[in-house]
Design a protein around this nucleic acid. Structure first.
Length: 718
DNA sequence: CGCAAGTACCTTTTT
DNA sequence: GGTACTTGCG
């Protein structure tokens, strides 16, 4: 039984406890993923359970991918028969198959955040409400929260005027979703639960199939998700949930730690297994993390321990500004790499908010150090990508009015704002959706509130769409893709835009995604393509080990580990985030976020803060994060807890600018041939003196144009 | 109707 | 500091 080899007693117990409910509480670095994958492998290989009777649910696509890879190594061929995916993906599949039993259009589209906002704005418009007074974002969040708790519009009380408005918007929004044959993210979960509750045959089908169910990151599940799991496990009760309440960082998305407590209530016979041995971090890092998290009051203490060496405690670093913070990080990574301690791929820089990555990126670019930013501007959020997807969605489901309104005039077809308003109003009067209205207009001819020119434009669009729909019956996804960018005129349109080349490249990248579905039957291929696009937000299915530094948000870092971790912005207002400071519960979540960050580190962790930072234009002086004070000074390897702002000069500090001024900087001019230490030969494109430095842009053969600060870059004339 | 310039607005984390 | 929305002009 080599599947159990190398596991510690607690891990072994967790793998072997396959009968009945199990709750695994797993500390960071305790081999959680290992346990889950080994459990599944054990089920298949040792007890001979058919893979198709196993479901493994994860919270993110990344986690699903990782589990799949690991399982492939352990249990090879049988893996593809396991139902493995995110809650949303699994539910989408169930609804695609059995949704029609409760009146869900088989061809439903999945609306993401942006689509939801568009539809909420439409709802406000329909109800003659002012979007300035009722922020669409806020409404979206309230509606989403309601759905996460299975609340229908009618369940929202009319306690205040705002609630009353929310109820009305929610109602209208649901109506519009239905008219568009669309489901939003929350619907995928909620409707599946409703389907199971309303249709016993369907529930029985799934209950009977799934003999074993595993749920990862259980602390991040919301009420609907837990409900779903309970229903699915209703027959065999072989349910295993794995989580760590200390790493619950998604309560803002309605994740509910109470699910862990309720699990023990709902399954009183549940076996509870603690994984407390940490295999990841040095003792001092683990101690520091434990001290940080222990300050939370709403938690059960845990006995995390490790056999690892004592190692180094956290480094606490203070810099003057956020620019220096970024520069310092880059310098330190460079120093570590040069001294041979680590490779740059071993380093990760983590931050609370995406906005912090900009300054960081600039420093990396200036220095000429390679990095990868995990999901910066997300690929699927780019305008041109969304436009093409909207066309594809329309082909699959022309009722999708958000997509229709999005692209009806992109590229411009002479259908302006006024015509669109009129179209919406007319469709509403006729009691049909926009697509149907277009068809009616194309057929009607006279007697319409549109100018002949507009009628022609609208009819033209309808005819084009109709044609694409017909062609889609026989073309594979790639051929259809090419036809779309050709017939819609998008190709010509996009190449004429200012960043035409870049946008075109993005479209070609999307075409690459379409290629994955090329061999499927036409309709299925399109459905599968759209589903993967809707549910897999990160296009970077990059392998974990890369040769470059990783820049990542603390949230995204959960589940990962790196030898060297930098957490920047260790300041009041950033971490903890200023929006969370007033609310004790939210503050505890910020602390957990900090804990997640520290526990990612194996060897070294740097807690970096800037004395002065620009926020929304103006410059602020921030206090050190309160979380730094939770780390006893004897654990800190360098730096110490930094004092109040006026003591800045007396505390440990790092400053890079001072001695540089006197140094003679080499001068270049455009056209000079130069050599860069890492990037090789290149030609100077521009040269510009700044206050104490000079900025030079160099075009390299392989690497394109890079910009450097001369005081840092190692460039010489050839 | 389309485009350009100007204005007001807002900033957390993601399936 | 960036973007989404508005205004004004051709």
């Amino acid at each position: 039984m080599d599947i159990l080899a190398g596991l510690n007693p607690a891990q072994k117990e967790a793998v072997e406890a396959i009968n009945g409910p199990v709750l695994i509480l797993a500390g960071p670095g305790s081999g959680k993923t290992r346990v889950i994958t080994h459990r599944v492998a054990y089920l298949i290989k040792v007890t001979g359970i058919s893979p198709r009777r196993i479901m493994a649910v994860t919270f993110t696509n990344k986690a699903a991918r990782e589990m799949e890879e690991r399982l492939e190594k352990l249990a090879s061929a049988s893996v593809q028969n396991i139902t493995l995916g995110t809650f949303h993906a699994i539910c989408a599949r169930i609804l695609r198959t059995d949704g029609p039993a409760m009146g869900i259009d088989k061809k439903f589209v999945i609306y993401d955040d942006d689509d939801q906002i568009a539809l909420i704005k439409r709802s406000l418009q329909d109800l003659a409400l002012d979007p300035k007074q009722f922020a669409p974002r806020a409404l979206q969040s309230v509606i989403s929260n309601a759905k996460s708790q299975m609340l229908a519009p009618g369940d929202l009380g009319g306690k205040s005027y705002f609630e009353e408005v929310t109820r009305r918007v929610y109602e209208r929004y649901e109506r519009l979703l239905g008219d568009s044959s669309a489901l939003d993210f929350d619907d995928l979960l909620m409707k599946t639960v409703l389907l199971f509750k309303q249709n016993h045959d369907v529930l029985d089908k799934y209950q009977s199939r799934y003999m074993h169910i595993q749920v990862d990151e259980f602390q991040d599940t919301n009420l609907v998700q837990y409900e779903l799991v309970k229903l699915l496990a209703g027959k065999y009760r072989n349910i295993c949930v794995v989580g760590d309440p200390d790493q619950s960082i998604y309560s803002w998305r309605a994740a509910d730690i109470r699910n862990i407590l309720n699990f023990e209530k709902d399954f009183p016979d549940a076996k509870v297994i603690l994984l407390e041995q940490n295999y990841r971090s040095t003792q001092l890092i683990l101690d520091a993390a434990t001290n940080v998290i222990s300050a939370n009051r709403q938690r059960k203490p845990k006995g995390l321990w490790t056999k690892n060496e004592k190692g180094e405690g956290p480094y606490v670093i203070e810099t003057y500004s956020e620019e220096e913070e970024a520069q310092w990080v880059v310098n330190e990574i460079d120093r570590l790499v040069r001294s041979g301690v680590v490779k740059s791929g071993d380093c990760a820089v983590m931050f609370r908010t995406n906005a912090q990555s900009r300054v960081l990126e600039e420093a990396f670019i200036r220095y000429g150090m390679a990095y990868r930013l995990v999901a910066g501007t997300r690929f699927y959020e780019r305008r041109e990508v969304k436009d093409i997807i909207a066309y594809l969605r329309l082909i699959q489901n022309p009722n999708d009015s958000v997509s229709l309104m999005r692209v009806i005039n992109v590229p411009q077809r002479g259908i302006g704002e006024r015509s669109l308003d009129e179209l919406t109003r007319w469709a509403k009067d006729q009691g049909v959706n926009e697509y149907r209205a277009l068809q009616l207009i194309a057929d009607a001819g006279d007697d319409l509130p549109f100018s002949p020119r507009t009628v022609k434009a609208l009819a033209g669009f309808a005819a084009m769409l109709q044609n694409l729909i017909e062609k889609s019956q026989e073309l594979d996804t790639v051929k259809l893709f090419d036809l779309v960018i050709d017939k819609t005129g998008y190709k010509q349109y996009v190449t004429g835009l200012v960043d035409g080349d870049e946008r075109w490249e993005n479209i070609m990248e999307l075409r690459g995604v379409a290629q994955d579905f090329k061999d499927m039957a036409p309709e299925e291929g399109l459905t599968a393509l759209l589903e993967s696009v809707a549910l897999v937000a990160d296009v970077d299915a990059l392998p974990e080990k890369t040769e470059t530094v990783t820049l990542i948000t603390l949230h995204q870092a959960k589940g990962l580990e790196f030898p060297v971790v930098f957490i920047i912005g260790m300041e009041e207002g950033i971490l903890p985030h200023y929006k969370s400071i007033d609310d004790p519960a939210q503050l505890e979540e910020e602390r957990r976020l900090c804990y997640v960050g520290i526990t990612r580190a194996k060897q070294k962790v740097y807690l970096v803060r800037a004395f002065r930072r620009h926020l929304m234009g103006s410059s602020n002086v921030n206090k050190p994060s309160r979380f730094l004070e939770d780390i006893p000074s004897n654990l800190i390897t360098r730096g110490g807890v930094i004092g109040k702002e006026d003591e800045w000069a007396t505390t440990y500090k790092v400053s890079m600018n001072e001695p540089k001024q006197s140094k003679e900087l080499p001068e270049f001019k455009a056209g000079d041939h130069v050599v860069h230490e890492q990037l090789g030969e290149g030609v100077v494109v521009s040269y510009r003196r700044t206050k104490n430095d000079a900025e030079v842009a160099v075009a390299f053969d392989g690497a394109g144009i890079k910009r450097f600060l001369l005081s840092f870059a190692k460039i010489e004339k050839k």
